[in-house]
Design a protein around this nucleic acid. Structure first.
Lengths: 258, 258
DNA sequence: ACCTGAACACCGTTCAAGT
DNA sequence: ACCTGAACACCGTTCAAGT
């Protein structure tokens, strides 16, 4: 697929009159692209990612499938735009002195946003293309918060990566897709396998299972749209933030001691 | 796992002689299934997930596409088996008193395993089906470690979910798939966008960018197979473990005070 | 600039039939 | 039990041509 570089736009009829702005869409076509991306997101919200196709999108727009390729280079490029369209409001006002509070807010808000479009969850962390659409304001905010905490240079980058892993990792897994078809059969078989877990080999798992069933990763048949994991998320981000704080304090101590 | 139902196996030619073991494959066919899953994993390792198809798998096995459906209910079910096949060695001997050390080892080992099969990364956290194949021994180990740390009841479940989010979240994002085709063009365009980041609007990002480029989430054009994020991962799991420890100590304090 | 209309090379899946 | 052989209903993508 994918054709590097979208020939249709480049060539523009070899001998014809030269286009004024080569490759740059004018405001009007930008609007049209917005519409393509927005209805793609709507279709994915409604029917799920597996059901989504460029042909259905074209149908919803009242247009031939090939028309999509005018606005977007690729299926993957379209999905990347869908992701950044859905997450574009993750940004917050710049962090102040209370970096812990700001980070908490960001992570919670990001999770809420993804919960609004659960079917795009599998795209968020897994494609460099989708990833690359992140808002610079969000990145700047995270860096500032961590800088306020005391991270610098290499450690600032590491801490940034840790925050992003947490931001994306929990909610991605929380909203893991349930099987589309065979769902009932699968759930029944899965529950049977859980019931057959050997309490002698796995005593703690067996005794905790009644409380964990369908509420713990790897032991669920419903995802976060039906069974959100709020308290697990809270503990997760709180632990991370506390751990980051400890590390930053420790580093500051090292610096002072030098 | 997951087969449940599979009509072809159930029907077995309506009027024909009754099969002795209905639905349960004999040892020989179990071997054959192993082979199907193993070569599927090999193809995905070699050519990537996007290039993988049941028809190519059939070709590699010297068999008609429909034959795959004897061993596996579905494309998704096959992929789930591929994931648990690839991750089956994540298990460690039971944790002792040093739960922090055990958790560190587990998370590091899990990451190493995924790095051995980077192309399955997008499947790991994103599908309940793939998720449900996790080894009970691993779950038991995590629960024991956290129990040793001092977590119980609801908090034990929350802490377990936090550990799994960390285990899966970092490496999944670290190994996010690069665009298959258009790669060079995309990278060039992406680098240009990075260079155009406004230092007035995003001062810290702009000044840190040279050190972050291609090493920080959302700012990369290579994934973890080319540029592994070791130090970020270490900081991440260390922060989480320290944060969990603090929380456990705090809870223990509460209990003592009651 | 933006879309049509048709074609190409694939897919996953089903089903009767073979052995 | 396990696979063949053919068919079905889709895909994403390309390309010349229209306007």
């Amino acid at each position: 697929m994918t054709s590097t570089s979208k020939p249709a736009r480049r060539k523009t009829a070899p001998g014809a009159q030269a286009p004024r702005r080569r490759g740059r869409p004018n405001p009007e076509s930008a609007l049209a692209k917005e519409q393509v991306v927005a209805t793609a997101l709507r279709l994915i919200d409604e029917d799920g990612l597996e059901q989504f196709s460029l042909r259905k999108l074209a149908g919803a727009l009242g247009v031939y499938p090939a028309a999509i390729y005018w606005h977007v280079v690729d299926r993957n490029a379209l999905l990347a735009e869908v992701v950044s369209h859905a997450l574009q409001d993750a940004v917050l006002p710049a962090p102040g002195a209370d970096w812990k509070h700001w980070l908490r807010e960001l992570l919670q808000r990001f999770r809420q946003l993804v919960h609004r479009h659960p079917n795009i969850a599998p795209l968020i962390g897994t494609q460099l293309l989708s990833n690359s659409g992140a808002a610079p304001a969000m990145i700047e905010g995270i860096l500032q918060a961590l800088h306020t905490a005391g991270f610098e240079d290499e450690l600032l980058i590491d801490a940034y990566n840790a925050v992003l892993a947490a931001q994306v990792g929990f909610v991605t897994q929380e909203l893991a897709q349930a099987p589309a078809e065979d769902a009932d059969n699968w759930r029944a078989g899965f529950q049977r396998r859980l019931r057959d877990i050997d309490p002698l080999a796995y005593p703690l798992l067996a005794s905790t299972l009644p409380a964990m069933e369908n509420k713990a990763f790897c032991l669920r048949w419903s995802n976060g749209t039906e069974v959100p994991l709020d308290s697990g998320f809270q503990l997760f981000i709180e632990a991370l933030i506390v751990g980051l704080e400890q590390r930053a304090l420790h580093e500051a101590g090292n610096v002072r001691r030098r």
